[in-house]
Simulated scan of single mutants.
Amino acid sequence: MKVKSKRIILSLAILIVTLSAFPIDVSAQTSKQQLSPITINVQENSELRDAYPNAHAIGWRYKSENGKVYRRQYNYSRQKWIGEWELC
């Protein structure tokens, strides 16, 4: 057990010494290329000004008939019923 831990410590020490002996230079290279300005066509992008929801607002509506409770889904976005009345 002691021999194993000594080998691990020795290996780490050698690794640290080796990495410090060979420094690595890292730098970002800049591109001298000029980028063309972005052109925006207002007529094509006029539709993007309006925001539309991706999901419909759907909830349950309840009613009571003859002591029984029924439910049915309702689409609040389109103001339409979904499915049929079902007993709860």
Rank of each mutant, 00 (worst) to 15 (best):
N54K: 08
K63L: 02
L35W: 12
M1D: 07
T30W: 07
Y70W: 05
N54E: 07
S64V: 14
V42P: 09
L48D: 11
G83F: 01
S46W: 02
N41Y: 09
R78I: 04
I8V: 07
N75D: 13
K68H: 10
I8L: 11
Q33K: 12
A28H: 14
L10C: 08
T30R: 14
N54P: 02
K6C: 04
M1Q: 09
S64N: 10
A28Q: 15
A55C: 02
E44L: 06
K80Y: 03
P23W: 07
Y70P: 01
A28N: 15
V26S: 15
W85M: 01
N45F: 13
K2Q: 12
T30N: 13
L35T: 10
F22S: 06
H56K: 07
T18M: 12
R61G: 01
V42K: 13
R49G: 04
C88H: 03
K2Y: 08
I8W: 03
Q34G: 07
L10S: 14
I9C: 04
N54Q: 10
P37A: 12
Q79R: 07
Q73Y: 04
I16R: 09
E84Q: 07
E65N: 03
W81P: 00
V3C: 11
V69L: 05
I82H: 01
I24C: 08
P53R: 15
K4Q: 12
P37K: 12
K80C: 03
R78F: 05
R49N: 07
G83E: 02
G83T: 01
V69D: 09
L15P: 05
S36F: 06
R7G: 09
V42S: 15
K2N: 14
D25C: 10
W85P: 00
L15M: 14
K68I: 08
S31N: 15
L10Q: 13
A28I: 15
I38N: 09
L19P: 06
E47R: 06
W85T: 01
W81T: 00
L35V: 11
I14L: 15
L12Y: 08
T18P: 00
R78G: 01
I58L: 01
V26L: 10
K6G: 04
Q43P: 03
S64A: 09
K80A: 09
M1E: 11
N66I: 03
E86R: 03
I16F: 13
W60P: 00
R71P: 00
E47F: 05
Y52Q: 06
L48I: 05
L12K: 12
S36E: 13
S31H: 11
L12E: 08
M1L: 08
S11M: 12
L19K: 08
S20M: 11
L19R: 09
K68R: 14
R78P: 00
G83W: 01
K6M: 07
Q29N: 12
N75L: 01
R7I: 04
E44C: 02
Q29V: 13
W81A: 00
R7A: 11
Y74N: 04
N41M: 04
C88D: 07
S11Y: 13
